[in-house]
Simulated assay, not measured.
Amino acid sequence: MGNRDRTQPRQFRPELERDYARSPDLGYEAAESAGFVSCLAHGFPTPLARWHYHDEYELHLITSTSGKAFVGDWIGPFKPGHLVLTGPRLPHNWLSLDTPDEGVEVRDLVIQFQREPLLHCASHIAELSELDALLERARHGVEFFDMGERAEQHWYRIKSAEGLRRLTAFLDLMCDLAACADYRLLSSVQLQSTGDDESIDQIHAVVSRITDNLSEPHSAAAVAAELGMSESRFSRFFRKATGNTFTDFVNRVRISRACQLLMDTEQQITHICYEVGFNNVANFNRRFLELKGMTPSEFRKQSLARFRDVRTG
């Protein structure tokens, strides 16, 4: 690609991947042959390596090169064997930093599958409920460890199969992913099941209050009083539902929102600090470093790598 036209504003927001752009010339399976599950293999550099999102779930395996991965508000390293499942409309990109001059023929092995057909089938086929937790985690991006070799074997079996045999090969892969206990969530925070509808409703009300009013002060004592609980009982209740203390959860949500603003806008870091609810820059920088392993300015600098020109070779 040539140099970006500097007279045009930088496109911060991720690009929506549409069906008409999925050309077989880029490695996609032809629309008439791809069904519920589709396979994609491509090298690097490629126009497919961009900050984008789509309506499908995507399982993404890196087979060569290393670099920076961008999944939602997470930035981290990747190398061969890196395996990530992203949920619908979760932005992502993988940028290789050690590509040889001639490029690499195959860097990415990808499986995309549609959301609605799977949800519809799950409402009628009880066994598919075993995938519920996996698909919920995928909303945040899930990185699986020590699964790369097995996932590559699954990919080639799925790619070589058609019709019902492709579907059964895909379900075999999903069984392995659902059973994998060695993983981490990449983007933002995750709620855990509390086991009853009333508790879930209460937690969602609290979380919505936090996320909708980030710039306002939030205290466990005030929320506990509103729910008619003692502060100690509320703290246990909240930690069970979120895996975090109330204060840690508020900080995580605020930092997650700050990441989005750092990636998607050109607002000054000081302005972002106060917009997401921190009352001083030093505390903001400290919490950001604790959660992201880098300062806000370093995070913004690395996020801009998403827009680095990709050579067409």
Rank of each mutant, 00 (worst) to 15 (best):
L83V: 03
Q267M: 09
S256Y: 00
G2I: 09
L214G: 12
D248L: 05
R4P: 01
I75Q: 12
K301G: 08
I75W: 05
D73P: 01
L167Y: 13
R13V: 15
R165D: 15
H271V: 07
T265I: 04
V189H: 15
S230N: 04
R165Q: 14
F145A: 08
S303T: 13
G27N: 03
E298C: 02
F249N: 08
E226Y: 00
H52S: 09
C39V: 11
M147D: 07
Q267C: 05
R311T: 08
A122Q: 00
V207I: 15
F234N: 12
A126E: 09
A30Q: 07
S193E: 05
R150D: 03
F170W: 15
D182L: 11
E266H: 04
R157A: 13
Y28V: 00
G195M: 06
H204M: 12
E56N: 06
P24R: 09
T194R: 03
A133V: 15
G35P: 00
H218W: 03
R311N: 06
A181E: 05
R137A: 07
A224V: 03
H218I: 15
R306M: 14
G277I: 10
A169N: 12
S23H: 02
H271C: 03
R115V: 13
S33A: 09
V253G: 01
A21H: 06
E152K: 15
A225R: 15
I111P: 08
Q192A: 11
F238Y: 15
R50K: 14
S123W: 01
P91G: 10
D132M: 14
Y274C: 05
F144H: 04
R115K: 13
A305M: 11
L90P: 15
S66Q: 09
E149F: 12
S232H: 12
E105I: 01
L118P: 00
P77R: 07
D98G: 01
G67Y: 04
G43M: 07
L118D: 00
H271S: 14
H42W: 14
F36W: 08
F70M: 05
L291E: 09
R209N: 10
K68G: 01
A69R: 11
C259A: 11
A241F: 08
E231F: 02
S256G: 14
A49G: 13
W51A: 01
F278K: 06
T242A: 03
A179S: 11
E29G: 07
T194D: 07
T7M: 02
L261R: 10
F44R: 06
S208N: 15
D201A: 10
E116T: 13
